[in-house]
Design a protein around this nucleic acid. Structure first.
Lengths: 149, 149
DNA sequence: GGACAGTACATGCACATGCATTCAATGCAA
DNA sequence: TTGCATTGAATGCATGTGCATGTACTGTCC
């Protein structure tokens, strides 16, 4: 009924192993990032990612601001989720949202000094958490029932 | 101000590259799985994972049912999220939830024939989607703005 | 036996997300 | 210029999630 081909079966097993590894790493990292960044800097993982793209985009292209439509594809969020995330960041004073002069449908998103500072502060912790959850094996916790430590 | 050590800087760059690769693969796979499995079989990614753990757990240990607390750590969900997920599966007739006789705090979760059948039906599509999104590079779509046909 | 800490699961609540829709602005065509 | 399809972003809504809590049960210590 299923495939009796041992080659195909082991290929599938490898795929599933890869998939579960991916899920486990993702869950561990996202959970730890959200917890640590949230606790110490009031940022979620996605908020941090957006700040980082703003820093990079501006540095790379010498511009002071990015269009929301440029930002969206890089953070794996829907357009609506990004819109609200930007609103949160703006409310927190970390970015500004201004009408784009050349196309008044669009908005230009720019880091404020406070946003840049928050990013600079949070960055070491972000790197540290990733180092622990991706590189070294670390506690799963969060979603997965038991917390260590 | 930052670390001027080029070794440390490149290690960090590698870590970030790994992290973004992980995020991209995860987003692509989860999005595609939710969409495809949801559309054709009425299952979310996590629902499928739970069905799969039930199939595996029962096959591996010869038991007909698993405790919720055994299931939780394997699916990267909080205890409350798993509880509601089980409730959804039960409402859909795919699992049963019975009181555990030896410890009446716990519940035993068992696949129904319909649940087993749904899993068997959905499995090939699940594997196919993973093959496309993990192995071969594939469309990102979903969250990331543009959809590629 | 009775009190009490701990465990297993369910539930109230707040919130982030995606989909569908809406609104404004643009660009193209007649 | 007017009309219309398209695009960029905001918003109503439904849903899934985690945290904190509640409830029922277990095991231990007195």
């Amino acid at each position: 009924m299923a495939e009796p081909d041992p080659h195909e079966a082991s290929a599938e097993a490898g795929l599933i192993a890869e998939w579960r590894e991916l899920l486990a790493r993702h869950a561990a990292a996202v959970c730890a990032l959200d917890r640590e960044l949230g606790e110490r800097y009031g940022l979620g993982m996605s908020e941090f990612e957006v700040l980082e793209r703003l820093v990079e985009g501006c540095r790379a292209e010498g511009r002071a601001a990015l269009r929301a439509s440029e930002l969206a594809p890089t953070v794996h969020l829907s357009q609506s989720a990004l819109s609200r995330l930007i609103a949160r960041l703006e409310k927190g004073g970390l970015v500004t949202r201004e009408m784009c002069p050349s196309d008044r449908r669009g908005i230009m998103i720019a880091l404020t000094p406070a946003g840049r500072e928050r990013y600079d502060q949070a960055r070491p912790l972000h790197r540290e958490v990733l180092g622990l959850t991706l590189g070294g094996r670390f506690a799963p916790l969060c979603g997965e029932s038991s917390a260590s430590a």
